[in-house]
Structures are given as structure tokens and as C-alpha cells.
């Protein structure tokens, strides 16, 4: 799975689950998801479960930090690095 696919997948999931009705173009790759309150703790857990299932990775609790999840771009980088390490 390449970075573009991961970004698309993550964006679709976030729009569908957390921002229903939001226009897709308003959610950019650099939108701050944690800082802006889109990804709260519950949403983070949902997203993690989804990423683990869809991308075949395992995420540890201490990896739930803004550096990994604060934007769609960071999510894609994080998933790719996890895939590379497994």
C-alpha cells in the first residue's frame, strides 16, 4: 500500500466516521486532527482499530502521539513506517 492509497483511505474513514457532511476538500493532508479536536481519544482508538485491520499493522499504546496521528500526512508516514518494519 503506497502513501497515496493510505492517505485516501484514512481521509475517507475520517470523513465518514468523524466528519459526516463535511466537504472533502476542507479536510487537507495537513489539517491538524488532534490539535483541532477531530481526533479525540475515542476517535483515535477507532482510527487505530481501522488502520490495524486495513493495513495489517499492530500499533502500540505509546505510539498514539501527535507526531504519528496529527494529520493525514503524518498518519500515512506512520503507517508506511510500520509496514516497512514488519
Amino acid at each position: 500500500m503506497n502513501a497515496i492509497q493510505i492517505r485516501t483511505m484514512a481521509k475517507d474513514f475520517i470523513l465518514k466516521e468523524f466528519l459526516p457532511g463535511e466537504r472533502p476538500e476542507n479536510l487537507t493532508d495537513s489539517t491538524e486532527l488532534i490539535t483541532d479536536g477531530i481526533l479525540d481519544s475515542l476517535a483515535t482508538l477507532k482510527l487505530v482499530a481501522y488502520l490495524e485491520k486495513s493495513c495489517g499493522i499492530e500499533i502500540a499504546p505509546d505510539e498514539l502521539v501527535p507526531e504519528n496521528l496529527n494529520s493525514i500526512a503524518q498518519i500515512a508516514n506512520f503507517v508506511q513506517s510500520k509496514q516497512a518494519s514488519t
Binding site: 468523524f18 466528519l19 463535511e22 483541532d36 479536536g37 475515542l42 476517535a43 477507532k46
Partner: peptide, 17 residues
């Protein structure tokens, strides 16, 4: 409240929305 949100979601909005 968290259990309800987990099941039914919660309204969020982007900055400026």
C-alpha cells in the same frame, strides 16, 4: 457518555465550520 459516543458517534467540525 463515552460508550454512547463509541456506538453512535459525536458531531465534530473542522476549524471555521
Amino acid at each position: 457518555n463515552a460508550h454512547y459516543e463509541m456506538r453512535h458517534g459525536r458531531t465534530r467540525r473542522l476549524r471555521g465550520g
